[in-house]
């Protein structure tokens, strides 16, 4: 028995070592850094390195830019995640109703943004959203609508970022939902038809609840992905206009890797991670469902 346990430990050891090297040690390092005022001057002379306790966190709490970044990030999460899930679900279900020979083409088309480089996508969208020459405003003009300044106005810029993020993200969910949809036995639909459920009833009472665990998983992935929003605003707007698209991660990047305030940046990183873990924990413990556990 004892021997068995040590053999087991041997098998998980590589994974543990990897976790330690790539997750725990950096995490503890970042946690430690966040309690100091580590920066360029500390690098020059270690006498300039102080442990300042939670000061970085207190600063964060009183930092307007941090609150704005939090708001920006939350907007993208709160608007973007449901939108992504909705589009993933709808596109997955709609693609099924397309004639088989076109299906692959549509699926690929919708999946392409997922595998494209974010930078390339952001650059294309910058052109699409150009106020004067962009395709988006051109189409709006055809509909007789105004020409909004997508990337120039703070409210629209965050919307534009959300649109780009969702557009890039939902194809992945679509593939996952498609696969999960195929797992639902046809008999369930047959049974429901015999029992008198129409198309909508079958969708709402069978398809959606059967996909719920998958959608829940996707929601977790999307929340954690969007919570770490970085590349889109970095390329599309550099966090502007007026800081309206500076996400928390972008703020952390700027403070850490542009202005070398590692202590302050680490505090943001720790806060980001803590919220993420909190979310995962809540998600785990509220996951109701027929798969039990």
């Amino acid at each position: 028995m004892k021997r068995k346990r040590s053999t087991g430990a041997l098998f998980v050891l590589p994974a543990l070592v990897l976790l330690a090297v790539f997750v725990f040690i950096p995490l503890i390092g970042v946690l430690g850094l966040s309690l100091t005022d580590f920066g360029v001057y500390s690098l020059a002379d270690s006498a300039n390195l102080h442990v300042i306790g939670a000061a970085n966190y207190w600063h964060l709490l009183r930092d307007r830019e941090a609150w704005q970044a939090l708001e920006t990030t939350l907007v993208v999460v709160v608007v973007g995640v449901p939108a992504t899930l909705f589009l993933s679900l709808v596109s997955a279900l709609m693609i099924e109703s397309i004639a088989e020979r076109w299906r692959g083409m549509f699926r690929t088309a919708l999946f392409v943004p997922v595998v494209c480089s974010t930078v390339a996508i952001a650059i294309s969208w910058r052109y699409l959203l150009n106020t004067r020459f962009g395709l988006v405003n051109h189409l709006l003009a055809l509909l007789g609508l105004g020409a909004p300044d997508w990337l120039g106005s703070p409210h629209l810029a965050i919307l534009a970022i959300t649109i780009v993020v969702v557009w890039k993200g939902f194809g992945y969910g679509m593939i996952i939902v498609s696969a999960a949809r195929k797992e639902i036995p046809d008999e369930l639909y047959d049974a429901a038809r015999i029992e008198g459920a129409g198309v909508h009833q079958r969708l709402l009472r069978i398809t959606v609840p059967m996909l719920a665990p998958t959608l829940g998983l996707l929601a977790l992935l999307d929340v954690s992905g969007y919570w770490q929003l970085f590349a889109e605003p970095y390329v599309l707007t550099q966090g502007g206009p007026l800081g309206s698209t500076t996400s928390l991660l972008l703020l952390m990047y700027e403070r850490g890797f542009r202005w070398w305030r590692w202590g302050a940046a680490s505090a943001i990183a720790v806060a980001l991670t803590a919220v993420m873990w909190l979310f995962a924990w809540v998600q785990r413990h509220t996951r109701a469902g027929w798969r039990g556990e």
Binding site: F22, P26, V30, G225, F230, L249, Y253, A269, T273
Partner: peptide
């Protein structure tokens, strides 16, 4: 995919 620590890790690497 876009984790802060990934980035920090990448930088360290």
């Amino acid at each position: 995919m876009r984790s802060a620590f990934d980035r920090a890790r990448a930088l360290a690497a």
